[in-house]
């Protein structure tokens, strides 16, 4: 449907037809005729035939959920992941606090300090997933593509403490070495072709 059509969809006539609904019978005889016609027309048997046919076709569409899962889209916003730098393996997070700031359900918190390498070190980071609404703002605002959304949507737990495990989110170092960390294409990722819109700074040396 084109955008124009979408906007005028109640005006045009094409593609629409009136459903043929008879008036309700008012006399007893009329009602009897309706019953008779409906009963004898075979509509009931059509219904029986359809379900029987489907039974024999045995074309089952059930996904047996815990054992089988449907693939989810790459832009799906489930439990966050904290990525590492591909080259060095260190955490990408620089502790800028923008995710903490932008979080509309106020569920992100971090503690930072000045570390021995004169860098800002994130000593503790927590996302209260019990409160998170998975809006994706944190991933969008992150300047380092450090916090992204993952595909793990099963986050029921019997303890609230389980909703804030940072270690669960961070890519394990061995997984990184095994090349299992993938760049995130969703919210906040670099738009393809954005290099073209960046002006170059003259660097003479």
């Amino acid at each position: 449907m084109s955008f124009e059509k979408f906007k005028d969809r109640n005006v045009g006539e094409d593609g629409y037809y009136m459903v043929d609904i008879e008036d309700y019978p008012e006399t007893g005889w009329g009602k009897f005729k309706q019953v008779a016609s409906r009963s004898l027309k075979g509509e009931l048997f059509v219904g029986l035939w359809v379900v029987l046919r489907e039974m024999f076709k045995f074309d089952i569409h059930t996904v047996q959920y815990p054992k089988e899962k449907l693939p989810i889209g790459p832009r799906y916003r489930a439990v966050h992941k904290m990525l590492r730098l591909f080259e060095s393996g260190t955490e990408r997070c620089i502790g800028c606090g923008l995710c903490e700031k932008i979080c509309i359900s106020d569920c992100i918190r971090m503690d930072t300090k000045y570390d021995e390498n004169s860098r800002k070190e994130v000593t503790e980071y927590s996302i209260n997933l019990g409160r998170c609404i998975f809006c994706g703002y944190c991933a969008e605002v992150c300047p380092e593509l450090a916090i992204v959304h993952g595909g793990r949507y099963e986050n029921a737990s019997e303890q609230r403490a389980h909703f804030v495990e940072f270690e669960d989110m961070l890519t394990p170092i061995d997984a990184l070495k095994a090349g299992q960390q993938e760049e995130y294409p969703g919210f906040g990722a670099i738009i393809p072709g954005s290099d073209k819109s960046v002006k170059k700074t003259p660097l003479a040396y």
């Binding site: 379900v51 029987l52 489907e54 569409h61 059930t62 047996q64």
Partner: peptide, 13 residues
């Protein structure tokens, strides 16, 4: 089971 098959489901599994 019968209802499930007729509705293209698996029923209790």
């Amino acid at each position: 089971k019968v209802l499930a098959f007729m509705q293209r489901r698996l029923g209790p599994m």
